[in-house]
Design a protein around this nucleic acid. Structure first.
Lengths: 296, 296
DNA sequence: GTCATTTACGTTTATCGTAAGTATG
DNA sequence: CATACTTACGATAAACGTAAATGAC
């Protein structure tokens, strides 16, 4: 069975006349005859009968007609739905990014994008580094904007490029016991609860582990969040310590947290990378967005 | 697009594994790959993406899946519906017959048929000769049992065979002015209203026209009925004259009508024919039923 | 090195058009 | 004899299987 031939059947049923139906289908009349004979063979019943020198539907043809029509309708709707989605995707860039990027960097770039591509959409979801690179790997997002991770042993299909670096800060609730200290040693954090990103050894989590390693302990991670807003919430309501970018810190410090200054030689800096799947063929819009992100 | 290939797609989507899906489909794995690539080309979007050394549905594949499933379901239901109808038709004989045949002849033959074919059905509709031969010509009925008609100039595709003859009677309402006359001349019927079969020059209508022709007038036909019950109804309620078979007359004369004896040399007899389409290929059951009708 | 998908290639099958054949009015 | 469906036949394209290649673990 063949959708083309079903179309032939529907047209033949509509006109009850092979020659005219064949004209409208842009095929020859014998081709139509053979196609119908093929369907008849397959369903085991005649679809048309001769009436004088014309044809008309048999009762089997009448029964079959509605099913055939609905079946064709369904598959055509399916094709339309996919084509529509493809078309919409061609005009949409999906981005998975760190919250901190939305404080200063992304708003500017987003504005540039919308000016350059007024008919296109930019979908942004805010997550943490490990989740972002998963999104990109899974093709859930075309691009990722995230912190440090290792794409030479693990995520080898990903391409990353350093966009900029930004300072990060340890933060605590204003009414936390350590909040009034001018500076604390890393070792003092040994039994403090941390709010970190869910099962991640990338981004700022990596910085925390490095710091604690240097002081000879593993940080006590109390809760896991999915983005910086989640971390801040834990810091304020559950007396946790966490790490956020300087720009994020500045924008939200009124919420009730403050900086915890740590005496350490480790540079409290986060690298921000742009990430994509190396062999993915990007739409023109996606390529344009990448240009915008990489421009000064 | 091709239903076979859609099935392939559904199985591949189900297993998310070409090799296993191909096994279940009894085709080779490269054939499956090519079929999927063909659909992808046609709908303009990838259906599967590689995930490690396996495959999984893309978002387009997921969108397309439900439409494809419903489309296949629909066409399979269509095929089932036709096959079911074919099967049921193989066990059913459709007969279009005169009412008079149901008084003595048909009940016997029907009983014989059901004894011989206990799992088969006999559908009978009661009409008048012209309608019966139309039913048979249109393949609405396999057989017809009707009166005289001309199949040598007009209905040349029909085969007819004389089964028997039966006397017919002119009938009138008991309170009709002519009801008490012992016998009337044909000429006396000139201004009487007749109940006849709808636009028919076959069967008993033919007899009536022949009789009136001989007396030099055209009968005044007041109403048209579709079978003998309709005629009788007109005879009783509208004071019409009509013609029914002797057996019918005997069975229903209690309803309020009586015989009108006409003085004529024309034999008041109707020939009863069995009719079918000459080249129709009859099912075994239909052939068996014909044997029963034609047997003594 | 094994498992899984893709590509290459030759064989078989299906589709379609041209042209001749058959049947109807 | 014109109209309309059917059959015959050859060219083109599609479908499928075998075998080799690529890629992931």
């Amino acid at each position: 069975m063949n959708y083309q031939h079903l179309e032939y059947f529907l047209k033949a049923a509509e006109y009850q006349h092979y020659t005219r139906a064949a004209e409208h289908l842009h095929i020859t009349q014998p081709a139509l005859t053979k196609a119908i004979l093929g369907i008849e063979e397959e369903i085991g019943a005649p679809l048309f009968m001769k009436r004088g020198r014309n044809i008309e539907l048999t009762k089997y043809g009448k029964i079959f007609f509605d099913y055939a029509r609905r079946s064709l309708e369904e598959i055509n709707h399916g094709i339309s739905a996919v084509k529509h989605q493809v078309n919409s995707d061609l005009n949409t860039v999906n981005l998975s990014a760190l919250c901190s990027i939305n404080t200063t960097f992304l708003p500017k770039k987003s504005a540039q994008f919308h000016l350059a591509y007024p008919d296109c959409s930019l979908n942004i979801t805010f997550k943490y580094t490990t989740a972002i690179i998963k999104d990109v790997s899974n093709y859930n997002s075309t691009f990722g904007l995230c912190g440090e991770f290792d794409n030479e042993s693990e995520y080898t299909s990903l391409e990353k490029i350093l966009l900029y670096t930004e300072p990060v800060k340890f933060v605590i609730s204003r009414n936390h016991p350590l909040a009034h200290k001018k500076s604390v040693e890393a070792a003092e954090l040994k039994n403090q609860p941390f709010a970190v990103y869910n099962v991640s050894t990338n981004g700022t989590n990596r910085l925390l582990y490095e710091l604690c390693d240097g002081a000879g302990f593993r940080p006590k991670t109390l809760t896991a969040a999915y983005n910086d807003y989640g971390l801040i919430n834990e810091v304020i309501s559950n007396q946790c310590i966490s790490i956020v970018s300087y720009t994020f810190y500045k924008q939200f410090q009124s919420l009730g947290f403050t900086e915890l200054h740590i005496a350490t030689s480790i540079p409290l800096i986060q690298k921000i990378y742009l990430v994509w799947v190396r062999d993915a063929n990007l739409s023109p819009v996606a390529r344009g967005f990448r240009e915008i992100l990489m421009s000064k």
